[in-house]
Design a protein around this nucleic acid. Structure first.
Length: 486
RNA sequence: GGCGCCAUCGUCUAGCGGUUAGGACGCCGGCCUCUCAAGCCGGUAACACGGGUUCGAUUCCCGUUGGCGCUACCA
């Protein structure tokens, strides 16, 4: 077990979407590739917008994806609590210490006063307005007067002069002039810490060694580093990953209607595929291999090999990767993944008997690699219907209504009912010789039969399909089709 | 406005001074074939622009343009 400790710190103000998922994945991979720990910390201090429903969904979705955590909600651990809202007491001593040591100070300016001073500037200057440090050097008397007057205060961090530089594990060396930063508020009037202060303290308390997050936090980093140092600690390693764009070229976020992981699950995507695809957004295997499991990813993954370029989500490629995973699943496994959809749609009821399961697996085997998503089984609903099928009107006009089709079908009906047994081989022999007798190509006979039996022009191999469907259902459907064309 | 990050086919990428700029998705053909998929074969398509540095720049440096992010008593 290495001492690498990484964390994901989502706020439950929305569902888990691809952007956060990618951050989760890269953190998880970093932990798993080095035998480190992956911590889940929930930043739910925005009580207005945080909900339990989102929290539950985040937990469910991360687990579904296979991104399990070593410390965090429901598993707990030595550095909890892992819900920020329950960590209230831990912050005050740190903030107080900063004040004692002069690294932070009380500021009595009200938001209104601040706004006033700010808008007194010209438009350009107002843009660049930073807190004017009015309260940075209050004398003891001034401060006591303010206190006596009952003025509430916030705590501001006293940004030191000079520069802050660090080596980002993804971005490389970065340097900032400190004077571009405000003396930021680290504790609100009500005493609660603001984001930048809270993350620093939480990461410090949780012994986080690598902070891997979106590059939207890059500018926060120097300020956090200053706070780490003011608290007498060396900061962790920072790694800022490029952001993920939606197809509109904008950053993927819950506000912009990013699709949640739960949504992808309902659309029929496999967790393996989602995680696989997301890993490829900004990273490539040295081997060029694109279909990779979590285990394989953990083996090969290296933060330093991450691209610094933001990438755009491509739904087509996700579908392709999903299809790749579908076909790699064993038949019993694929059957298992299909079952929830079949049950939801009422195509399969309750628990399966072993005969039913065997039959289902034969169907799944026959459908073979025609499924790009789990939901695609619904294209094969005709396998599961006891009675008639719905005929696709295009299929009917293109095949059944063609001259001669009815006659061929009628002949086929006799062949099928006369067939001594309904095995694939027997059916193939019988149907092919019938076509030969009639002097037509096998396809000319099979297509009308396919439409009659499935309602569609496309299906798995006809002979296997007929055999699986069974004589009774096949004949009933052929009759229905004959009715249709007469 | 200030600060920061980024820039190779439509998309994801390989490249790390000399390559016919490679691969994948998509798209378009073909093969296979009872249809549809899958598979296989082939095709389409890129170094944003301008300066340097160098014998030589996609690659290194600077600038321009463009995209994105941060700039809250939100996280």
């Amino acid at each position: 077990m290495s001492d690498v400790r990484v964390r994901l710190a989502p706020s439950p103000t929305g569902y888990l979407h691809l952007g956060v998922t990618r951050t989760a994945l890269y953190n998880w991979l970093t932990a798993r590739s080095g035998g480190g720990s992956f911590i889940l910390r929930i930043e739910d201090t925005d009580r207005e917008r945080s909900t339990d429903e989102f929290l539950e969904a985040i937990i469910t979705d991360l687990r579904w994806l296979g991104l399990d955590w070593d410390e965090g909600p429901e598993v707990e651990g030595p550095h909890g609590p892992y819900l920020q809202s329950q960590r209230g007491g831990t912050y005050a001593p740190f903030v107080e210490r900063l004040v004692q040591e002069g690294a932070a100070y009380r500021c009595y300016c009200t938001p209104e006063e601040l706004e006033e001073r700010r808008s007194a500037r010209s438009a350009d200057e107002a843009e660049a307005w930073k807190y004017d440090r009015k309260c940075a050097s209050l004398s003891r008397d001034e401060r006591e007067a303010l206190e006596r007057a009952g003025r509430p205060h916030v705590i501001r961090f006293r940004v030191p002069g000079g520069k802050t530089s660090f080596v980002d594990a993804i971005q490389g060396p970065v340097e900032f002039e400190n004077d571009q930063f405000d003396d930021l508020v680290i504790a609100r009037r009500d005493g609660t810490p603001t984001y930048n202060m809270a993350v620093v303290i939480d990461d410090m308390e949780m012994r986080v060694t690598h902070v891997i997050r979106g590059s939207d936090h890059l500018t926060n980093t120097p300020r956090q580093i200053m706070m780490w140092r003011a608290l007498g600690h060396e900061p962790p390693v920072f790694a800022h990953m490029p952001l993920l764009f939606g197809q509109d070229g904008k950053v993927l976020s819950k506000r912009r209607g990013a699709v949640s992981i739960g949504e992808y699950r309902r659309m029929g995507y496999l967790p393996e595929a989602i995680v696989n695809y997301i890993a490829l957004l900004g990273w490539a295997s040295e081997s060029g291999e694109e279909i990779l499991s979590l285990e394989q990813l953990a083996d090969e993954f290296e933060l330093s090999k991450l691209s610094r370029k933001p990438s755009t989500f491509d739904p087509d490629k996700l579908v392709w990767i999903n299809a790749q995973w579908m076909k790699r699943l064993s038949v019993p496994e694929r059957t298992e993944r299909l079952l929830p959809v079949l049950r939801d749609e009422g195509l399969v009821a309750g628990e399966l008997t072993s005969e039913e399961r065997e039959w289902l697996e034969r169907v799944v085997d026959l459908i073979d690699d025609r499924l790009k998503t789990v939901r695609d089984v619904l294209d094969f609903d005709w396998f599961f219907l006891a009675s008639g099928v719905t005929y696709d009107s295009m299929a009917v006009s293109k095949v059944l209504d063609k001259p001669g089709a009815g006659e061929i079908l009628a002949g086929l009906r006799k062949v099928l009912s006369d067939a001594p047994d309904f095995t694939t081989d027997a059916l193939e022999t019988a149907i092919r010789s019938y076509a030969e007798e009639k002097g037509v190509s096998a396809g000319k006979a099979i297509q009308p039969l396919r439409v009659a039996v499935t309602g569609k022009t496309a299906s798995p191999g006809m002979f296997e399909t007929l055999s699986l469907l069974g004589r009774h259902r096949v004949l009933a459907r052929v009759d229905a089709a004959l009715e249709l064309s007469s």
